[in-house]
Amino acid sequence: MNRPAAALPRLTTPVLAQVLERRVMGLVIGAAALVHLVLMRFDLPAWPCVVRSAVGIPCPGCGLSRALTALLHGQWRDALHLHAFAPVILGGLVLISGMALLPEAARRRGIEAVARFERRTGLTALLLVTLVGYWLTRLLFFRTAFIDSTR
């Protein structure tokens, strides 16, 4: 019976809070996302999917760049059709970038609040598991439509 109880703390370990702890990482993530989305917006060559290039199948995040671009243009239906996690990822990017820009005292309070929330709810772990499930569902049951939508 100890196994499930031992696994529970792992699910509620603050993942996002650990990313927020690293200000430089937050700035790099925000800048990289912004550059990538600007390249996509102007139909310029953007970074290709490493997983798809190496293995030949779309990764769990394939379609997110176009979905985020559609979302930023207010095209919610198109964004959700391309990738259901687009609003969640956009929220995460805004949170990570915004926290990196806050003064240290406010940033500290924000990180502590996020860590408490993650420990209490396990939401970040749940979202990551759900993302993998979403990817597998698309890959196994909607393969053709999924692969076509990521080209």
Results as ranks from 00 to 15, higher is better:
Met1Ala: 09
Pro4Lys: 11
Ala5Arg: 12
Ala5Met: 11
Ala5Thr: 10
Ala7Phe: 14
Leu8Gly: 02
Thr13Glu: 05
Thr13Gly: 00
Pro14His: 08
Pro14Asp: 11
Leu16Asn: 08
Leu16Gln: 08
Ala17Asn: 09
Gln18Met: 11
Val19Tyr: 10
Val19Leu: 14
Glu21Tyr: 12
Val24Thr: 09
Val28Ala: 15
Gly30Asp: 00
Ala31Phe: 12
Ala32Lys: 11
Ala32Thr: 14
Ala32His: 10
Ala32Ile: 09
Leu34Lys: 09
Val35Cys: 04
Val35Thr: 08
His36Val: 02
Leu37Cys: 00
Leu39Gln: 12
Leu39Ile: 06
Met40Tyr: 10
Met40Glu: 09
Arg41Trp: 04
Leu44Val: 05
Pro45Val: 01
Val51Met: 09
Val51Gln: 08
Ser53Asn: 06
Val55His: 08
Ile57Glu: 09
Ile57Ser: 05
Pro58Glu: 11
Pro58Thr: 06
Pro58Phe: 05
Cys59Glu: 09
Cys59Asp: 08
Gly61Asn: 00
Cys62Trp: 07
Gly63Asp: 09
Arg66Met: 03
Arg66Leu: 01
Ala70Thr: 01
Leu71Asp: 01
Leu71Ala: 00
Arg77Thr: 10
Asp78Cys: 04
Leu80Met: 12
His81Asp: 14
His81Cys: 03
Leu82Gln: 13
His83Cys: 02
His83Met: 03
Ala84Trp: 07
Ala84Tyr: 05
Phe85Met: 04
Pro87Gln: 13
Ile89Phe: 06
Leu90Pro: 02
Leu90Gly: 00
Gly91Ile: 02
Gly91Cys: 03
Gly92Glu: 10
Gly92Ile: 08
Gly92Ala: 09
Leu93Arg: 11
Val94Pro: 01
Val94Tyr: 04
Leu95Tyr: 08
Leu95Ile: 15
Gly98Asp: 00
Met99Ile: 10
Met99Glu: 04
Leu102Trp: 15
Arg109Ile: 06
Ile111Val: 09
Glu112Arg: 14
Ala113Gly: 00
Val114Phe: 01
Phe117Cys: 00
Glu118Val: 02
Glu118Gly: 02
Arg119Glu: 11
Gly122Val: 07
Gly122Lys: 12
Leu123Tyr: 11
Leu123Ala: 12
Leu127Ala: 14
Leu128Asp: 01
Leu128Pro: 01
Val129Thr: 06
Val129Glu: 03
Val129Pro: 00
Trp135Lys: 08
Trp135Phe: 05
Leu136Ala: 15
Thr137Phe: 14
Thr137Pro: 03
Arg138Gly: 15
Leu139Thr: 04
Leu139Trp: 07
Leu140Gln: 05
Phe141Ser: 08
Arg143Thr: 15
Thr144Cys: 04
Thr144His: 13
Ala145Ser: 05
Phe146Arg: 13
Thr150Asn: 06
Arg151Cys: 02
